[in-house]
């Protein structure tokens, strides 16, 4: 399908890029990305992917907008307080770009529903705030062969890596098992500087777009770490782990499962 005149104008700054062009833009318009989490990380991911003209954006979150979210979750506005985050996000996405079709999942992602949902998408963005979800998303994406971007933030530091199942390092290659419960930050430790998810989420959105275009070098096999206080980026090459319980030579994890004892981050206790 040819681009309309208004699409040519809207995406003009993409079209003139050698790496995008009209054909690349049409690829983006035909692409489907799932964002799990409509919070700090999900906000910039959703806003930028919407602006970029990703044709279908799925967004999953069971939570409602809370006043304490607004310091960093820039897709939600003060009048949205109390509204499901997925509905608030959909309104902003559609206001930015009516080309985008939004699918909302007003539920927590769990072992029972994740395989069915990710199957509908080309790329998944982990924009969650807890270890249970991060391990579940990693496991499901590896098992389904679905490329995804991991992102995590805490206080002034963030990290992100892109996972290409069967090709590059997965989250469990780096962290075979979830951290012990007492190593997980408690509510009183889980502060975060508001701009931090903007940096990490923007990188995750960039990775999604590059993957969909098939251009550039992905952040695969390299964990990128950002320290906002020191204003330093560092990336560490990490090879696949042959002993990875998920994607190693003798996998012990063969289906998605919930890590129920990890649901300890504040937002999940509500």
């Amino acid at each position: 399908m040819a681009l309309t005149d208004s699409q040519i104008e809207r995406y003009s700054r993409h079209i003139i890029l050698k790496e995008v062009g009209g054909k690349g833009q049409q690829k983006l318009l035909a692409s489907r990305v799932l964002i799990i989490g409509a919070g700090g990380l999900g906000a910039p991911v959703a806003l930028y992917l919407a602006a970029a003209g990703i044709g279908t954006i799925g967004i999953a979150d069971a939570d409602n907008v809370d006043l304490s979210n607004l310091q960093r979750q820039v897709i939600h506005f003060t009048p949205d307080i109390g509204k499901p985050k997925v509905d608030s996000a959909r309104e902003k996405i559609q206001a930015i770009n009516p080309d985008v079709q939004v699918r909302c999942y007003h539920e927590w992602i769990n072992a029972a529903n994740i395989m069915g949902i990710i199957g509908e998408y080309d790329f998944v963005v982990d924009a969650t705030d807890n270890f249970a979800a991060k391990f579940l998303i990693n496991d499901a994406c590896i098992l389904a062969g679905k490329p995804y971007s991991h992102g995590g933030i805490l206080q002034f530091v963030g990290q992100t890596i892109t996972v290409l199942p069967g090709e590059s390092t997965c989250y469990r290659c780096i962290f075979p098992t979830p951290p012990p419960k007492d190593a997980i930050p408690t509510c009183s430790q889980a502060g975060v500087i508001g701009v931090l998810p903007g940096v990490i989420g923007s990188i995750q959105a960039t990775e999604a777009i590059k993957f969909l275009l098939g251009k550039g070098e992905l952040l695969a096999g390299r964990l990128l770490m950002y320290d906002a206080l020191k204003m330093k980026f560092r990336d560490v090459a990490i090879n696949r782990n042959p002993n990875c319980p998920l994607c190693g030579e003798h996998p012990t994890i063969t289906e998605a499962r919930d890590e129920l004892d990890l649901l300890t981050v504040c937002d999940l206790e509500q």
Binding site: L3, I8, E9, S12, R13, I15, I16, G21, G22
Partner: peptide
């Protein structure tokens, strides 16, 4: 500019 090159690029494709 930049619609001049935008249209050129689309034709070249």
């Amino acid at each position: 500019c930049p619609m001049t090159f935008v249209k050129t690029k689309l034709k070249l494709e």
